[in-house]
Structures are given as structure tokens and as C-alpha cells.
């Protein structure tokens, strides 16, 4: 008796199905709440600073937006954003660490789909979180205009283009961390390992900020691009990628390649 070989779904179908399933698994997880709410902390801090001490920061008649955006971005990028990416990648991968890999890899989807789906999910969550942050930031600025008309938020334009450019730069700058942490999470198969390496990376980056080759360190990239925020009276941000961003993209590419190989040639699934 001969059995006909069943037809395997195409690679894109496999990826799509895995992504839909992975998205469902995010329900009620810390990863999802982190992505949706993570941006609120720096915005809230700066809202409070400007509400209570804004008169000391903004000269009468001056456009408050550049300083407000700059301060908030600094709060977010130096420590919170790298930490957010470290936690997010760890939490998303950790969803599978209690026997999930065994189940997932015994399903009719290739390892490429499993790998690609989680990577895409991380990229989307990262984008959603940073976009939400910008929306909250601008919303809080408008709110300050109503609450504290003296600061002048309502009488000056936000200048959206530089803010959007900065959002793009920051996103690119976080890709290196995201790739490296994703690869680490796949390699460790636990939550604590990649978290420890991530914290060590962030602390090292902040300590080495004055090093001439600091652009090579992916954890420093979100801080390094803060210098792109220019202008005291009107915000301006160049569209050109800075070296730190190019290195970030390089790290991302390298880490994705190594991470995929790790999943492909992964240690025996014994958990």
C-alpha cells in the first residue's frame, strides 16, 4: 500500500498561521501590557515636571515644544527604552519556555516560520510601543497647553515632521538590541539569562558613552542618536542615519542570522 505524500503549506502560509497563533498567545501577558503601557512612564514623569516646574524651564514667550520633546526623549531613550526592548524580547520568547517549544516544533510548521513569526511580533510590538509613546507625548503636551496656558504649548506648533523622524531614528536604534536579545532569548531558553546579559549590556553602554567606538555597542544606540534632536526655538531632526544606527542595523542582521541558526540546529528539545 502506498501513501501519497500530504501537501505541506507554503512558507508564507506557515508564517502567517504561526503569526496569528503567536498574536493570540499574547492575550493577558506582561509582554502585551509592557508594549501598550511602557511609553506612559517617561511621558508621565515629564508631564509632572512641566506641570510643577515648567515656569523654571521655559522662558516666557519661548516655544516650549523642543525642550519638552527633548527632555522626555532623553528620559525614555537612555535607560527605559533599552530596558523595554530587553524585557519585551525576553517575555515574548519566554511564553514558549514551559513546554511550548516541544508543542510548537511538533506542529506542521517549519522552524523558519516559528523564528520569523516571533521576530515579526517583536518588531510590531516595538513599533506599537514607540508610536504609542509619541502619541502620549504629544497628547500630554496638548494637555499641558490647557492646564498651564502660561507655558505656551497651545500657542506654538508641535512641528510633527522632526518628531516622526526622531521616532524613525529611535526605532532603527533599538533594532540592534532587539536582534541581540532575541537571539540570546532563543539561546538561553529561560528569562533570567538574557535579562542579565541585557542589563550588563545597558550598564556597560552607559559607562562607556565617552569611548570613541561607542557606536559599536548596540545598547548605546538609542542614547547616541539623541544628539540628532536639535534646535532651541524650533525642533529639527535630520533624516540621515547616524553611524550608531548603521551599526544597530548590522547587529540586527547578524543576530537574526545567528538566532535562526540556533533555532535550526537547536539543542535537543528535552524540556
Amino acid at each position: 500500500m502506498e501513501y501519497t505524500l500530504p501537501v505541506a503549506p507554503g512558507p508564507l502560509t506557515q508564517l502567517g498561521r504561526t503569526l496569528v497563533a503567536d498574536a493570540l498567545k499574547l492575550r493577558r501577558t506582561a509582554a502585551l501590557w509592557l508594549a501598550l503601557g511602557g511609553g506612559a512612564l517617561p511621558v508621565l514623569l515629564n508631564l509632572l515636571i512641566f506641570y510643577f516646574k515648567g515656569h523654571l524651564l521655559v522662558k516666557p514667550g519661548q516655544n516650549p515644544w523642543p525642550q519638552y520633546v527633548g527632555m522626555s526623549w532623553q528620559t525614555a531613550s537612555v535607560l527605559l527604552l533599552p530596558m523595554f526592548v530587553v524585557l519585551l524580547s525576553g517575555l515574548v520568547v519566554n511564553l514558549e519556555n514551559r513546554g511550548g517549544w516541544r508543542h510548537l516544533l511538533a506542529q506542521p510548521v517549519g522552524r523558519g516560520a516559528v523564528f520569523g513569526s516571533k521576530l515579526l511580533l517583536l518588531l510590531v510590538l516595538n513599533a506599537v510601543a514607540q508610536t504609542l509613546y509619541v502619541l502620549l507625548l504629544l497628547g500630554a503636551g496638548v494637555l499641558l497647553g490647557w492646564l498651564k496656558p502660561d507655558l505656551g504649548f497651545q500657542s506654538h506648533s508641535i512641528s510633527l515632521l522632526p518628531v516622526l523622524r526622531m521616532l524613525g531614528h529611535t526605532y532603527v536604534a533599538t533594532l540592534g538590541i532587539l536582534g541581540v536579545q532575541y537571539g540570546l532569548a532563543l539561546a538561553f531558553r529561560g528569562f533570567v539569562g538574557p535579562l542579565a546579559v541585557g542589563i550588563a549590556g545597558i550598564v556597560s553602554a552607559l559607562t562607556l558613552l565617552r569611548w570613541e567606538h561607542i557606536d559599536l555597542v548596540p545598547y548605546a544606540a538609542p542614547t547616541r542618536i539623541l544628539r540628532l534632536l536639535e534646535g532651541d526655538t524650533q525642533l529639527s531632526v535630520t533624516a540621515t542615519l547616524s553611524p550608531a544606527e548603521w551599526y544597530s542595523l548590522g547587529w540586527f542582521a547578524l543576530a537574526v542570522l545567528v538566532g535562526y541558526l540556533l533555532l535550526l540546529l537547536r539543542r535537543p528539545v528535552t524540556d
Binding site: 492575550r27 493577558r28 514551559r98 511550548g100 511538533a106
Partner: peptide, 21 residues
């Protein structure tokens, strides 16, 4: 593997469930 596993259902040791779901 992918094609053949489409016709296979498996339960390996304690089932791998997502406890938060």
C-alpha cells in the same frame, strides 16, 4: 517533516499548555 506532521497529532508527556490562556 512539515508535510507529514500535518497528518499527525501528538501528546508528549505532560501537555504543553499556555497557562495564561
Amino acid at each position: 517533516r512539515v508535510a507529514l506532521l500535518g497528518r499527525v497529532g501528538a501528546l508528549i508527556e505532560s501537555p504543553s499548555l499556555y497557562d495564561h490562556l
